[in-house]
């Protein structure tokens, strides 16, 4: 029997410590996949919101009933001749009613209210000279206000970025908890196998051999648990309802395309973490054994 083979056998495979490591690693990796998905989704959301709002704008026209039609025509003409505006569409009264209905309910007599006119703009990637456009509108149609969504976009992106930060901090915390758990499990495994250590030292085994036997077993258990936890989490993410199925809160959570390979890094990281933590623990414990 080779040294490698006996190294796999000297530490008993049974014992709740080793199984607790697997269960703990599975739970941690399950949570880590969700934290990772949240981080990726938040980044995607921030990018999406940024892009969606960056090239759109609105012109709102508020004027007395007798002047509103004339000012609307003037604004449309100004927008048509302004470089950087790809399209300007006057929102129909029915579309406006739909937008307000969501906030004010269906029973409001919208047709009797003096609603402002809304013009939706789609801008070219270069965009217009925004300050120039504001001044021109002010001069030619005093009731028109140009809104480039800046005040909406910034806090949305800020919120998404903060969400991503929280997810990343969660990932770091999960990694820390996993390292602590493995360290404790390694200490417990070595304490409960004191007889194994004492016999091995008695027969002249070096610390490296003894440590390797424990490290191998703990790393293997951690790796298996991490793989299982990751697989369950990925399966759960895949089973979440997609966009358009009514659950908008969860619809964006998950990975896209090659992003689905990202969770595969978790069992590898868990394995490296387990190896380093259990090796450090084994060396520390063995120093106290004669």
């Amino acid at each position: 029997m080779s040294q490698r083979t006996i190294s796999r056998l000297v530490v008993p495979r049974s014992g709740q410590n080793t199984w607790l490591v697997s269960v703990g690693a599975a739970a941690m990796c399950f949570l880590a996949v969700f934290a990772m998905a949240l981080s990726v989704s938040a980044a995607r959301l921030a990018q999406g919101w940024g892009e969606a709002l960056a090239q759109t704008a609105t012109v709102r026209i508020t004027a007395p009933a007798g002047e509103i039609e004339g000012q609307t025509l003037i604004v449309l003409e100004v927008l048509r001749t302004t470089p950087g505006i790809a399209e300007a569409v006057l929102l129909a009264p029915s579309a406006q009613a739909e937008l307000l209905e969501a906030w004010l309910g269906p029973d409001l007599p919208l047709d009797t209210l003096a609603l402002p006119r809304l013009i939706e703009l789609r801008e070219t990637p270069e965009g217009p000279d925004r300050e120039g456009l504001r001044l021109r509108l002010q001069a030619e149609a005093p009731g028109a206000v140009y809104d480039d969504h800046t005040r909406w976009r910034a806090p949305l992106i800020e919120a998404a970025t903060a969400l991503r930060g929280v997810a990343l901090v969660s990932l770091v915390l999960i990694g820390g908890v996993m390292a602590a758990m493995i360290t404790l499990a390694a200490s417990a495994a070595m304490a409960s196998n004191r007889q194994v250590i004492s016999v091995l030292r008695l027969v002249g085994a070096r610390d490296r051999f003894i440590a390797r036997a424990f490290v191998r077993q703990i790393s293997l258990r951690t790796g298996l648990g991490a793989l299982l936890g990751t697989a369950i989490a990925v399966g759960t993410l895949l089973s979440l309802p997609g966009a358009g199925e009514g659950m908008h809160l969860l619809a964006g959570l998950g990975f896209q395309g090659s992003g689905w390979f990202l969770p595969l890094a978790l069992p590898v990281i868990a394995l490296i973490l387990a190896y380093a933590a259990s090796l450090a623990t084994a060396r520390r414990v063995l120093k106290g054994v004669t």
Partner: peptide
Amino acid sequence: EFLDHLSVGQNVSLPMTATG
């Protein structure tokens, strides 16, 4: 003391196998 989960043969040969 022995490694009780290993056979007598494996225990007896331990000083050799554990040291390569």
